[in-house]
Design a protein around this nucleic acid. Structure first.
Lengths: 124, 124, 124, 124
DNA sequence: GTGGTCTAGACCACT
DNA sequence: GTGGTCTAGACCACG
């Protein structure tokens, strides 16, 4: 279910947050779905439980998941909506940033190639 | 020399900042060049001098121009270098933002079309 | 809370920026605290809202405060840290400037008296 | 006449500029006085002539000295006045900087000790 | 003439 | 209610 690159510059916990967000975005994780427990998933991925705890805490603080003591951790009801709202805000920032870069003389091709490299990595 | 769209959602003063930054980036405004005076350019563009003053002040605070009271306002010596540095920082933000958007389920095509619209507008 | 000297040579908006910075530095304004709204404080101080807006915008651009349209304006989380960093940079400039003044023949006493006058004013 | 510290962090040419400015300020170098030629002074101080050339060029560009090809380099007529003007401007900056430092929470004693260390060094 | 500040008052968008 | 933008017009200091 998860794919960790231990040699990446991006921290393991951030990779996990990223992947959960993606799974929610594409509907693979739906509201009410349980996330694997910290101990079992940490064992399965051979990572430190604290690392996973940090990832889960971040998801909680984003309002994407919710820990129910004694029961487990679940995708929150409005997780997809929160992601969409966040995406809308970020899309706006994206436009502003691209506009600013264009005005500072950055070429269209340069920005396209960045986009390509980011999406190719995922499609692999 | 300048082109204001009064019906745009982006504030007039921001359009002006944007255009001066672009003129510096492409070398049309070189270090030491004088910017048109607040009053004359405001009259020419049919905008309020205060609006232009705000745009110019922003350029000053970016270190791109330098006001000499009683004399005029001039492009600073390291204006182009400052722009390049700012562009490098913004390119980094651009990558992070695009990565985040990808993970939130935004499609490659959507970001590309935003980029296209931004660059086409300029090329017109 | 604020104290404006209308007859001072230093602009009203600059006095306001100065005082907010001081309140942050001494901890009287903590991260997350709301600043008085533009209209209410302007009315209270009997100054034009635009003047206060200018002061607040400057604080925003320094990263000390953050405006949330429709909600209010708040002291940013890292405001105190930013002030400390700025103080470190300015201390360095202070040394260089004092060195330069010494070499141009300015007496020790003259600089001391400037310092005294600045700090006495505050202590009153 | 000159005193170079080769192990100082401040560049040799800057030390020279500093010392000439000081000599002008205290009247040890008067308008019309000749500066030692690049070659002789460089030999005397055991520094590279290019270093001295750089110092002299800087003094020229400040309007403090003036090179007369084939004849030598002389303290300009208005050197002292220029220094006074520069000092006046810098004194103003000094006040502003000190004010800003005070508002950012820097203590009076800290600034005084910086001043003391700078002036003691000279008096030694 | 230059830049800079301040006021008065209108309008918009957001929540 | 909040912040933000824009206009119109007055005033100051500097050169």
């Amino acid at each position: 279910m998860f794919n960790i690159d231990r040699f990446s510059a991006v921290p393991v916990y951030a990779q996990l947050v990223e992947q959960v967000r993606h799974l929610i975005a594409v509907g693979a994780l739906a509201p009410g779905d349980a996330l694997p427990s910290v101990r079992t998933l940490a064992a399965q991925l051979s990572i430190n439980p604290n690392t996973l705890q940090k990832a889960y805490s971040e998801l909680d603080s984003m309002g994407l998941s919710c820990a129910v003591p004694g029961s487990g951790r679940f995708i929150s009801q409005d997780a997809a909506q929160r992601l969409k709202n966040a995406a809308a805000r970020d899309l706006d920032d994206f436009k502003k940033l691209a506009l600013s870069l264009r005005d500072m003389g950055v070429e269209h091709e340069q920005l396209q190639s960045i986009l390509n490299s980011i999406y190719e990595r995922r499609e692999q």
